[in-house]
Amino acid sequence: MEQFSQLLLAFIVFLSLYLLGSSSLTGCINIMALQGMCLGFLPLTVRAEGFHSRTLLLAAGMFILKGFLIPRILLYAIREVKIRREIEPMIGYAPSLLLGAVLIGVSFVLAERLPVPAGLRTSLLIPVSLATVMMGMLMMISRIKAITQVIGYLVFENGVYLFGLAIAYEVPWLIEMGVLLDVFVAVFVMGIIINHIARAFDSISTEKLTRLND
């Protein structure tokens, strides 16, 4: 079980890196869906002492929401505004891949120094969660289209979820539900906003929003 969870974590980091290097928006959303599914599996592998019905329910909720529902909303959004590709990222794909690698390194260093419970020190959970948070951030910073920013935000959120999984021995039910609801609403709102941006500016590029400064 332990090894399976490490494998899943490695896969999650790999997916985040893949996201950084991918230019097709549909591809991005699919990768994100895959990552969400991995996250849904993860709670089942982390806890050694067997399955509670609650854990199962959470895993199922995560699986459905992040694996299916949110990707469907995003796919619907890009079909509505008719875009396929992130054309001009502010940081190119290769440099962002390199940066992603650097960030993974930084997160390992940080995780080393972070005061965490002794049992977690050897686990990949902390560095992977930090790396995912940072790569989500990087994605939000380096991309221009609003939709890729939403994807970045979701990746960031996945990282936060991972961190919560690592820190809280038994994540309280309410907090989990809160996080899920939060993400769902955020994506929902962003989907609507993207549509509105597209309608108002004939583009979903957030660059147009600089007009609103001052």
Binding site: M137, L138, M140, I141, Q149, T206, E207, R211
Partner: peptide, 25 residues
């Protein structure tokens, strides 16, 4: 420092966060 560009603001925030983390740990 103020360009009105969302990405740049995010960069400020994350740079600040990473700096504090690196400094404090």
């Amino acid at each position: 420092l103020q360009y009105g560009r969302l990405q740049l603001y995010l960069l400020y925030v994350s740079a600040f966060l990473v700096m504090t983390l690196l400094w404090k740990l």
